[in-house]
Design a protein around this nucleic acid. Sequence first.
DNA 1: TATAAGATCTCCT
DNA 2: GGAGATCTTATAT
Length: 180
Amino acid sequence: MSHVPSFLLDNAEVAAPRLLGWSLVTEVGEVPTTVVLTEVEAYGSEDPASHAFRGRRVANRAMFGRAGTLYVYRSYGLHWCANVVCGPEGVGAAILLRAGVPSVGIEEMARRRGRRDHLTSGPGKLTAALGIDASHNRLDLFAPGSPIRLVKGVGPKKVTVGPRVGISKAVDLPWRFRID
DNA sequence: TATAAGATCTCCT
DNA sequence: GGAGATCTTATAT
C-alpha cells in the first residue's frame, strides 16, 4: 500500500505547482541522491502537447496508471525524462519534472553527470544526475520500499508561471511552474 | 518501408 | 546562437 497525496488526483495544471518544493529521492546505486524540485510542467488529458493525447500506446502506458506512478520516456533519442502521473487512473495526465536543486549525494550526481556544474538544471540532466532510466518506468513513487520516491517538502512561497518549453502545440498554455 | 519531428543537452564559436 | 548526437512514433508512399 502506498500513500499518494490527494492533490495528485487533481488535474495536472492544478497538481503540478503543488509538487514544487518536494524532494525526489533515488536509491539506485550505492549512494542515495536527492533533489528538491524547482521546475515542473503540466501535461493534461485533453492536451495536444501531451504524449497521452493520441491515446494509450505501449510506450506511454505508464501515463494511464495510478496517480503517483513514475513515467519515463526517451527524449530526442538520448535523454530520459521523468514524469509523475496524476489525475484519476486511466485519463493519461502527468507532471514533467524539469529541474531541481541537488540536496543529497551531490558528489554522486557529479560523478554520474561527469561534471560539477548544471547538475539538475533540465529534464534530461535531472534524470541523469539521479540515475533514472527506462528500467524505472511505472514505478510507484509512494511505495515505502521503492528505489525512487517523492517526499513532501515545504510549500513554495512564490510560484512563477509561464508557457511550456520545447513544444509545438498548445504553446500558450501557462502550464510551466517554478520557484527560485 | 521510408521519412520527419520531437516535453534535450553539450560543445563549439 | 547553432549543429550534432541518436531513438521512438506518426504519417505518408
